[in-house]
Design a protein around this nucleic acid. Structure first.
Lengths: 187, 187
DNA sequence: ATTTTTGTTGACTGATTAGTCAATTTTAAA
DNA sequence: TTTAAAATTGACTAATCAGTCAACAAAAAT
């Protein structure tokens, strides 16, 4: 068993359940079933643990964005795949997704949020969006705002589907959600 | 000077700047310029302070939603006024808005989030949306998801305008943002 | 087989925390 | 003016926290 991994998993679970402010390192090591000291062998400080956890999860999410993108030919099909990659990842990784949202809305790990490994992956996504704007598939509007809005709409979908899991395979609902999403983007 | 109000203001500022987890009550009373003990005279516990702060700010936001709604006749005009009421409130109350987002994305104050005073005001808004759906102004889709998406899109706008304040009075940008918003909603 | 390195433990510590309380001041009431 | 009630203080405490460390165990290298 990789104790570092156990610690990260335990931390995710507890941070989401109780919040950063109410999760002592002792609770994390206990939940992971390891000694208290080992946490500080793998992570210099508690904040380091939070940073590293955020970084690894964000990288995981970013990696999934462009999954199978080459299997699709049409531009709108690609856009839809990205959309569905993102919300499916969120649903398959509910705790991790919640943790990301939590950190993204808190003034912490600010440096990590701009880590090169995060920026790099998003750069690919950004390039795709810029291309789509050129091709008139997407509205020509402030690209940062555009991307932010895309993520926010997907977060809204993930959170809703987390509350009502049966909707995930309700074709009508998913189609309506896509319509909402794409209507907000198209020129 | 109302010391309770001073404490709530100081708490908002520090919670946003440092996060719940890194803001001791001692820092709050110090920032407010009052004694450490008085915080617990007005609030039974730190969590009570957080709950009460959340409740008061959320009520403030909710109150602003339907501002001047009767001065507008057209249905779409009303929808747009609600949209602009919300993001303007967010920009005029940046710290409070950030605090709300922070709490909304954390597992805390769960009971307060469903407080009757909060639900009641949102009920008016919900009624307006239901009416708009009936009138075919808004897409007929799961209303809870619809409302959630509306809030998320507005949050995205507030956060973007907070980063780039000069855009607030850029008519072209605001018009594009409205277009994105309404396109996602219209049938 | 022996040494070195790495992983692991849990008791420990100094600092910090939420919350208390007796004493004092301020305000309001009689 | 006197008295009672409410507001305010800051030193205090018991609990909890992040982080250390000496000792031990396991694995790798020699």
């Amino acid at each position: 068993m990789d104790k570092k991994e156990l610690l990260l998993e335990a931390a995710t679970k507890l941070f989401v359940a109780r919040g950063l402010h109410a999760t002592p390192t002792s609770a994390i090591s206990k939940e992971a079933g390891v000694s208290a000291g080992i946490l500080f062998h793998y992570f210099k400080t508690k904040d380091d643990l939070i940073d590293e956890l955020y970084l690894s999860i964000k990288k995981e999410l970013n990696s999934s964005i462009l999954n199978d993108i080459n299997k699709i030919n049409s531009d709108i099909g690609k856009l839809r795949l990205i959309w569905s990659n993102l919300w499916n990842w969120g649903l398959d990784n509910k705790l991790k997704f919640k943790f990301l949202q939590q950190i993204d809305h808190t003034n912490c790990s600010e440096k990590v949020k701009q880590h090169p490994e995060i920026m790099e992956k998003q750069q690919h996504f950004r390039a795709f969006i810029e291309e789509s704007i050129d091709k008139k598939i997407i509205k020509n509007i402030d690209i940062q705002f555009l991307m932010s809005s895309m993520f926010y709409l997907i977060a809204s979908l993930v959170n809703h589907l987390t509350m009502f899991p049966e909707l995930r395979h309700n074709q009508v609902f998913i189609e309506q959600a896509w319509e909402m999403y794409y209507n907000s983007l198209k020129p």
